[in-house]
Design a protein around this nucleic acid. Structure first.
Length: 696
DNA sequence: TTTTGAAGTCTCTCC
DNA sequence: GACTTCAAAA
């Protein structure tokens, strides 16, 4: 591992090396950071703006605790993503040496999972439960809906499984009564409240009898364990210090868990920035961070405002954008990084030109010596990078995409995993449903009927082959039955999961080839899945890891290789980019309806969240920021039309005044389609703008 | 009654 | 471009 900070390792082992002086961590931080890092005991709230050294402060606090003699395994560090946890723990390790390795760190969900595996059996939760991801949970909700909706589901205006799951999850995470939630967010469905609650009851019941656990349950059971008469004290007694990153993205359920975990000592340090709260769809509320001092008596508040990341012009624009927020609590950021380039506001004609501008500017910066890994292209939603990805591939520019549609969400990958999951948990109804409907001649109704019979017989895998399937499905049923029985008997061990997948594919690949015209990319996905599986000792370990730590990007699938070695451009949704920084950032599709997304327009709260999201996007940049907006876009709804697009409403007159307007010319590149005659001369819109400046 | 094919309807963010 | 809904076919 590269020791970038070339810091001496003070703690080679668990014992402090008394021959070396204790490192003065204060000297490496500013006054506020140092106060936070070396703060003693009791609740601590650190309000930290973008780029103010939030991670650094938290990392140093962990190091300071270790230096003060707190055993590493008595420290719990909760982060929002697994990426953040890994990064912080490796920084701690660089700072204090290998003792940092024993700090417990991870996401709330991963930590809840670990505790549930360990303590669940004592609280009546079977230890071999299967974790459902969101898609699985929605599928189970679909089954519950089919059973419990009654006549209501036949109506047009009845919530879909995704909506039901969303309502359920919000209810669980925020404590808001279902009636209030539905009334507030889905007034259309208030007539169906009784049916909705009945479905939720059925969903919960199904989870229990099928030994399934959804993401929310990982938190719910954690809280339940804390409230448990026998276990509570044991679980709460695991840690002496709890630290939480991105506190503005926690919800009330998580706050209650923290309250329970720290009830004996109140040694809870949280870091957050209300201006970067962008996960309200998950039940998070930036009010949570405001309520912190009220929830935890005697809270000390420390505010970090000096930004070490961005040059002043980038900070100016970001500050102006966020200053329009109707409610905010942190102050403006400032920096000593004076000078620097003003952010570019780039008007392009259409998507192909936007793509071309981004690619050429990236190549230009790259030729000037900036590594690709120091640049990122950000966008509001995963699908918005499609055109760019094609072009990057054509030009052989390596990139790594974060966020957006994930590998594991692809139907064919889920299909193969369903085989493994049924083997691991024969009661896993969601996976049975997938497998059964895969067979010819078996649809939803027959699948439900067969599952009913399977349940009646006690979910024995070997019974599957004897079930009365329709004649068309007989042959496929027999081969599936044989396969499952055979795999069930196979032993775990080195490479066993990859071997299982190979056997599954012997059956499944043919189905795949029949189903799709071009099965090759999907077959390649399965190839990769098989390769990843090679690194796990058992099906259970593999499945749990996939649910909680999904490969974050297409590159991550390349297995354990350190990404630092390869120079790769990052494409990312703004959400996935949070907490990261790059030398040059391109924000594409800064168009009203795209950013902010049109569905948020008209809803004040959602619009505010979009604004914060824009702020997050801009503050990722250190030296260069370019915001691009196509003047017109191909509108798929009315495919013959181009629409004239508006620049994002967040880039108002004052913001634009702080930016450098740029219109790329693309001389000698005639492939670009001419502007369509939409009744308006688009070039007229561009008139009065500056030429492409600053470029070299 | 159940499955399948075709037209129609949206399209997000993450553990 | 993926998924739901509707209508016809088995």
């Amino acid at each position: 591992m590269p020791d970038q900070n070339d810091l001496p390792r003070i703690y080679p082992g668990r014992e402090r090396d008394v021959t070396r002086p204790v490192r003065d961590l204060r000297s490496e931080l500013n006054a506020e950071q140092a106060a936070a890092a070396t703060f003693g005991t009791g609740p601590l709230l650190i309000i930290a703006g973008a780029g103010t050294g939030k991670t650094r402060t938290l990392t140093y606090r962990v190091a300071d605790l270790l230096q003060r003699g707190v055993p590493a395994e008595r420290i719990l560090l909760l982060t929002f993503t697994r990426r953040a946890a890994q990064e912080m723990l490796s920084r701690v390790e660089r700072l204090v040496g290998s003792s940092g390795r024993h700090v417990h760190g991870g996401t709330f969900h991963a930590t809840g999972h670990r505790l549930l595996r360990r303590f669940g059996p004592a609280a009546g939760v079977a230890g071999d439960f299967t974790i459902m991801d969101q898609g699985d949970a929605e599928d189970l909700m679909h089954l519950a809906r089919a059973e419990h909706a009654g006549g209501a589901a036949r109506l047009k205006r009845f919530p879909k499984k995704e909506t039901l799951h969303h309502i359920y999850s919000r209810h669980v995470n925020t404590d808001m009564p279902i009636a209030e939630l539905v009334g507030r967010e889905y007034p259309l469905f208030t007539d169906h409240l009784v049916a909705i609650e009945r479905i939720f009851g059925g969903y919960t019941e199904r989870k229990a009898t099928r030994n399934l656990v959804d993401y929310d349950d990982l938190l719910l059971f954690w809280l339940a364990m804390l409230d448990h008469a026998g276990l509570g004290a044991q679980v709460a007694g695991l840690y002496d210090h709890v630290l939480v990153d991105e506190y503005q993205d926690t919800n009330t359920l998580q706050a209650r868990i923290l309250h329970g975990m720290c009830r004996a000592h109140a040694n809870l340090a949280v870091v957050g920035d209300d201006a970067q709260s962008v996960y309200s769809f998950r039940g998070a509320s930036f009010r949570n961070i405001l309520d912190f001092p009220r929830t935890f008596d005697g809270t000390t508040i420390i505010t970090l405002e000096e930004n070490y990341r961005s040059v002043q012009p980038i900070l100016d624009v970001s500050n102006t954008v966020i200053s329009r927020a109707t409610e905010r609590f942190t102050k403006n950021l400032w920096t000593k990084r004076m000078g620097g380039e003003r952010p570019w506001l780039v008007a392009v004609q259409d998507e192909p030109q936007q793509t071309r501008f981004v690619v050429e500017r990236i190549l230009e910066l790259h030729e000037q010596g900036m590594p690709l890994r120091e640049m990122a292209v950000l966008f509001r939603a995963g699908y918005m990078s499609a055109d760019l990805e094609v072009e990057l591939t054509n030009r052989n520019i390596p990139y790594d995409k974060w966020g957006g549609l994930k590998f594991l969400e692809a139907a064919h990958v889920k299909d193969v995993l369903a085989f493994l999951r049924v083997l691991e948990n024969p009661r896993d109804e969601v996976s049975w449903y997938r497998l059964l409907t895969l067979l010819p001649g078996i649809g939803e109704a027959t699948a439900r009927d067969l599952m009913g019979q399977l349940a009646a017989r006690g979910w024995l895998l070997d019974d599957f082959g004897t079930l009365p399937a329709p004649p068309r499905a007989r042959e496929a049923q027999r081969s599936l039955g044989t396969l499952l029985s055979r795999l069930q008997g196979a032993a775990d061990g080195e490479g066993s999961v990859a071997r299982d997948i190979a056997r599954i594919r012997a059956l499944y690949d043919d189905l795949l080839r029949e189903k799709y015209d071009t099965p090759e990319p999907r077959l390649a996905d399965l190839e990769q899945l098989q390769a990843i599986a090679g690194g796990y000792p058992s099906r259970g370990a593999f499945l749990a890891a996939l649910a909680l730590e999904p490969p974050q990007s297409t590159q991550d699938l390349g297995m354990g290789t350190e990404d630092d070695e390869t120079d790769t451009l990052v494409l990312s949704t703004v959400h996935s980019a949070k907490g990261k920084e790059w030398n040059a950032v391109f924000l594409i599709w800064a168009v009203d309806g795209w950013f902010p997304l049109s569905r948020s327009i008209g809803n004040e709260e959602e619009l505010e969240e979009e604004r914060r999201l824009m702020y997050v996007a801009m503050t990722r940049a250190r030296d260069h920021l370019a915001v691009t907006y196509p003047l017109n876009s191909y509108n798929s709804r009315r495919s013959a039309d181009y629409s004239i697009d508006q620049l994002s409403r967040f880039l108002d007159r004052e913001v634009r005044g702080q930016m450098e307007r740029v219109v790329p010319t693309f001389e000698g590149l005639p492939e670009s389609p001419p502007a369509p005659s939409a009744g308006m001369d688009l070039r007229a819109l561009m008139r009065g703008r500056f030429g492409m400046g600053g470029g070299g």
